[in-house]
Amino acid sequence: MDRFGLRVAVALLFATVGYWTPVSGQIVQEQTVQASAVVLNEVLVGPLSKIPHAMLNDAHGVAIIPNVIKGGFIVGARHGRGLLFVREKNGVWHAPVFITLTGGNLGWQAGVQSSDIVLVFKSERSVQNILSGKLTLGADVAAAAGPVGRQGAVATDGQLQAEIYSYSRSRGLFAGVSIDGSVVRVDQLATGDYYRAAVPGGPVVVPELAQQLTFAVATLAGGPTTVPPVDGSLATPNPALGDPGALAQRMGTQEPDILRNQLEQLAPQLDVLLDPQWRSYLALPPNLFVGGSHPTPEELNAVVVRFQTVASDPRYQDLSAQPAFQSVFGLLKHYQVALTAEASTLNLPPPPAG
């Protein structure tokens, strides 16, 4: 597809944005997808695009992380949420999984509060590190500021030695930038929230906006995708290319162990806000933190009821509005669903032989 055709495709993508209404629990994720579509259009598709398309031809993955917030003046830590698009060995691009980028330092322009980050992954290892746990840029793999404009268009393979190339856009200015020290992780909870199965145990449904965005990335990078061309209609999977949501379903699995570990990390952030009486009232089941075991669904339900009581009472709005409270409460509800589903599975011996 030529650049004009690609701009038409992305224009249809933006038309889709206006008609998509996310269900409850998907709003934050949908905002991330929409913001990523804007970044894609401005830095890769539009007439002033700066990332050379040649940089994407043999890419194993592309990450778009809009609105990365800085934590200090001139140089400071940062945090952002975005999308990771992964290309399989056969060239097929998957629907994106949600990721977070945290830590590290970056030279910011004075007065700039946020920046859009694009990462181009040139090795399979760099992508697999993220999917397997986390990736620290500059430590686990070599990362470098990406070439822009004509500089990138004429660069040869011998000149491009890094495994990841990073780009940043702030206040309309765009440049390759080093972000060594940043940690990229898959956000399993956000991925699981965004991709829902139509029936229990079935394949997840890839929302139309994510399908359209995946097609745009695949068109830019060259190679097939698990969704058909953008034509303004509801895209349907191409069976010959596999399940478009397979990677998202695998990475978004909300297993009880994952949710328990996340609760262990977040609970102390809520505890520091509470006095002893409130800590006792909102205490999580003690076996949650001992020996890797899980509470019973009944034990967890009692805790969820207490959190719900606080959240629904206007007198405690100062507490229920705290991000730490909302995060722990949200995780508890997901954990409750996961434990209930696990408890309902029959523990049967192997079926009869023959």
Rank of each mutant, 00 (worst) to 15 (best):
V199D: 08
Q262L: 12
A162W: 00
Y194K: 02
G158E: 13
L288R: 04
Q212T: 11
L234F: 11
R171M: 15
L259N: 02
Q161K: 13
P237V: 02
E264K: 14
L270Q: 05
G242V: 09
E208Y: 08
P256E: 07
T236W: 03
V199K: 11
R279G: 04
Q265F: 08
T156W: 01
M251V: 07
N261P: 00
S166Q: 10
T156K: 09
D257E: 13
R150W: 14
W278M: 13
G192N: 08
A221D: 06
M251S: 06
L273H: 08
Q159S: 15
R250E: 10
A248T: 01
N238L: 14
L263G: 03
F215E: 10
N287L: 12
P203L: 04
L160C: 01
R196P: 02
G222H: 09
V154Y: 10
L259Y: 02
Q269C: 00
T219I: 06
T253L: 15
G223D: 09
V217N: 01
G158T: 09
L270W: 09
G291A: 15
N238I: 14
G158F: 07
Q269D: 12
E163T: 00
V272G: 00
L288Q: 09
G201N: 14
L282T: 04
F215S: 03
E208K: 05
G201P: 10
L263F: 03
V183H: 07
Q159G: 15
A216P: 10
V184E: 01
P203K: 07
P229G: 06
E255V: 12
Y281W: 06
V272L: 03
P286T: 11
D271L: 12
V184N: 01
P237R: 05
R260H: 04
Y195P: 00
E208N: 12
F174G: 02
